[in-house]
Nucleic acid binder design. Sequence first.
DNA 1: AAACATCGCAACCGCTCCAAC
DNA 2: CGTTGGAGCGGTTGCGATGTT
Length: 341
Amino acid sequence: MGRHSCSVKQKLRKGLWSPEEDEKLCSYITKFGIGSWSSVPKLAGLQRCGKSCRLRWINYLRPDLKRGMFTQDEEDRIISLHEVLGNRWAQIAAQLPGRTDNEIKNFWNSSLKKKLMKQGIDPNTHKPLKENQAIRIEEKQIPHLNEMDQPFHMTNRSFNSEANGQLTECSSKVFDLLFLHEFQSNVNPSEYNSQVLAQYNDHHQSEFEENPNYVFCSASSVTKIEHGQMTDQTDFGSSSTSRMSSSNSSNMCSNQNTAGIRMNGMSENSEALSWDVENKMESLFQYPYIEIKNEELKSSPSQERELYGHSSGDLMSNYPLSSLTEELNGANLDVFSKFKL
DNA sequence: AAACATCGCAACCGCTCCAAC
DNA sequence: CGTTGGAGCGGTTGCGATGTT
């Protein structure tokens, strides 16, 4: 099956690194830079495998590493990124300069997980523990919309716009990426869509084969997937403040034969599904975040909390369904329950 | 003070991906 | 086109530090 561990091939040192070993590795990399890790131990005079050298450099010796405790801001960021990316530590670390995947993983497992549990939040789903149970009950009532195994906590929406606006089934599935675009200011929506697609494809290859036409939509873009390939992507603008107000956005949506349009088409029966920014209804999924529109405020959950008393992440997890449905009077409750905010 | 339990972190292991051959 | 090996990732382990009895 798997390969032999590199330290098995030869008699190589294992365990903690000595200061002398660190010094050797450091001076080698400083002098010659990072090339082939497999050749580093020999050239640097170390009795270690290349893999071990790489890890030591990345996690400990790299000069750009930030040491010490995680700040509140970093903590907030990890939590909101984890909510979207799950245990993809390397991707989370990429958003936190100076922090390593290993460090974040350890911090999550030793501290954040427990902290969330104490707050009554399931660290896996980021939903309140009670609400989670409620969803399980709801799942039984809507067996064809099982979202529990969706990666990235995305909502998999299957619906048929012809049946009086009732969401039932159709050949396209829609994945709303809005929450990430809106609150990770340094994430490029186009790149993210590609990444998500690639990862989603990995996990759900068979689904793509059976039902190959998908649409990833967000307030900022619609990405059309045919037979597992991204065939069309429409971006509505780079800043979130301009996304929804762009007149192009609604035109694009309504002119394309994608599930995005079906969402728009739903607005005749349910305004909640309209992306019409003028009515401030926008998409159902954006609704809870309307007030957090200022680009400058999105950078930090703690800043958001300071100003608004909550962060977008908080809202995402805790916005009560009942409040939403009350606000969106006349809308079909069944629709909301299926969409599961 | 000693024994035991718990915690946090560094490092290892097994696996996948992908480029080179 | 199959094989090989390096790079990278996420899960797990081991051990020293710290806390508790």
